[in-house]
Design a protein around this nucleic acid. Structure first.
Length: 206
DNA sequence: TGCCCGATTAACT
DNA sequence: GTTAATCGGGCAA
């Protein structure tokens, strides 16, 4: 369980994303294991950074290893980790955690008891961890953030991203195969109307 | 300026 | 299955 340092993020967003599955993500000591995330890059139209820099997305255009926090649908907060060298405007959206630390606090903040409803979704996990606008732009290798790499091999599921209407065919959603804490199940390879993303929609992380 | 559309969620029918 | 909540960005007028 090595501590993740900022240089970890200075790689392709598609190298960072699967490496973060199984990693531990804590915010002020509250959080859990990352089981789902999505990659975004300024070259594809689903990314906030696609149309260039604005006040909201400025952190995406900065150096890797920082938190990009944005307001979703005017209601929720969502957190991304910036990746790749400055200027790539690439990031991973943290979509779901398996709750491990500070569960009582997360239940209080979310107003629900069911473990599966605490952090299964980008808006839910920010509410559970207490992440909001004021944390936008903070470095990920210093408090209140704490990231540790996972131990051992895990099977990674791959599929299309959730809740977007552009670039819908890119298989840029990554998950821990079989986890009960995903925001949605991954479509089975060959399922009706579902494109196949590689053999069995999964691969083994090494 | 005004209008439409979201990287969502919970509460409806 | 559908819809409301609510605000910042993008673009037309």
């Amino acid at each position: 369980m090595a501590r993740i340092v900022r240089s970890f993020f200075a790689r392709s967003v598609h190298a960072v994303a699967p490496d973060l599955i199984g990693a531990t993500f804590l915010f002020n000591g509250v959080g859990g294991r990352i089981v789902e995330l999505e990659a975004y890059h300024h070259t594809e139209p689903a990314a906030h950074s696609y149309r260039g820099q604005t006040e909201r997305n400025a952190v995406m255009f900065g150096p890797p290893g920082y938190a990009y926090v944005y307001r979703s649908y005017g209601i929720h907060w969502c957190v991304n980790f910036t990746c790749e060298p400055k200027g790539s405007a690439a990031a991973v959206l943290i979509r779901a955690l398996e709750p491990l630390e500070g569960i009582a606090k997360m239940r209080r903040r979310r107003g629900v008891h069911d473990l599966r409803l605490l952090c299964s979704g980008p808006g839910r996990l920010c509410e559970a961890l207490g992440i909001s606008r004021v944390h936008n732009g903070l470095a990920l290798d210093a408090p209140p953030f704490e990231l540790h790499s996972g131990a051992g091999e895990v099977e990674i599921a791959v599929g299309p991203r959730i809740g977007i209407t552009k670039a819908v065919d890119l298989p840029w959603r990554y998950g821990l195969k079989g986890s009960r804490f995903l925001s949605k199940p991954f479509p089975h390879a060959g399922e009706k109307g579902v494109p196949t993303f590689g053999k069995d929609n999964a691969r083994t992380k090494v």
